[in-house]
Simulated assay, not measured.
Amino acid sequence: MKLNNILLLFLVIFIIADIKAQEVAGYAHYAVVRSTDSINNTPADLSIINLYPFVSKVAAMMRFKLEFTTTNSMFNRVKTMELEKVSDEDIKTTETLIGYRDTSWHDASYFYRFDRDMKNPLDKKGLILKTRNNFDWNISAETKQIGEFTCYKAKGDKVISYREGGEYKIRKTPVIAWFCPEIPVPFGPVFGRDLPGLIFEFQYDGIVYGLTDINLTTKAEIAPLPNKEILTKEEWRERLYKLAKELNIPYQ
């Protein structure tokens, strides 16, 4: 075997070994805090929070689980004994005000979550909506210790597109993430993603999801996407527009 071929073989073996070394799987649990102060909330947000004073207390009872590999993840709320005495209505209100909708999934390109199918509005899990989250992260050298791990700070924006007056507009909400490069997984709680390490803490709109514990395993039991129709946000909007037109309902 020629020297060049031998060097190439060793290079390939090294690359494969390095890739395998980066394969990570496991699960992480998170708690959530909902701020009620005027620093982290707009006046509109505060007025809503004041209508539901139980939200902070109920949010403190909630726990969430992120199951992950290097290529996929699933995030959902887990049952706790404390919540058994809380009404379903108060739980749903709290979920809304902490930015949690339902079980969600990530893969290398998209974020997936349940949404209503306008053909059957009563079915809250009628289809799967897939979106790309473009946070345009700015990673800083600032670090902090979370448990035994060193995490780095990243700032970005949650980009939301909406329709107003017949035109699509963009609104940006600042987000902050503390991520851990020691765990090379590009996922995090709720819709957080696309950083070179697992997100330990995720902050936005006066909401903070923080890691409580983590368990690294050889594999994660990630449930596959439900067998439902998958639409992009643009396709979903187009369907809604056509339905509104058929029903002669104004749609902005």
Rank of each mutant, 00 (worst) to 15 (best):
I91S: 08
G165V: 02
K125H: 07
R101M: 00
I98L: 06
C151R: 05
G147S: 10
V159S: 13
N134E: 11
I128E: 09
R113V: 06
V159G: 06
N120T: 07
M118V: 11
K124I: 04
R132E: 15
W137G: 01
R113I: 07
L129S: 08
T96I: 13
P121Y: 01
D102K: 12
V86Q: 12
A154E: 01
N134F: 07
E148Y: 13
E142C: 04
G147W: 15
T96G: 00
I160R: 04
Q145L: 15
Y152F: 14
K158T: 01
T103V: 11
D157N: 14
D90H: 07
R132G: 06
A108S: 08
G99W: 08
I128S: 07
N134K: 11
G126T: 01
K125M: 08
D102F: 08
D115R: 06
I160W: 05
I128Y: 00
M118A: 14
I170S: 09
A108Q: 13
R163D: 10
G156I: 02
T93K: 08
A141K: 14
R101W: 07
F149Q: 02
D107K: 04
S161H: 10
F114A: 08
D107S: 06
N120W: 02
K153L: 09
L122Y: 00
S109M: 09
K92M: 07
Y100C: 09
D123L: 00
G147V: 11
K124D: 09
W105P: 14
E167H: 08
D136I: 14
G166Q: 04
D88V: 09
K169C: 09
I91D: 13
R163C: 02
T150D: 06
K153F: 11
G166K: 01
K119V: 06
N134T: 05
D102T: 08
Y162G: 10
A154V: 03
T94K: 06
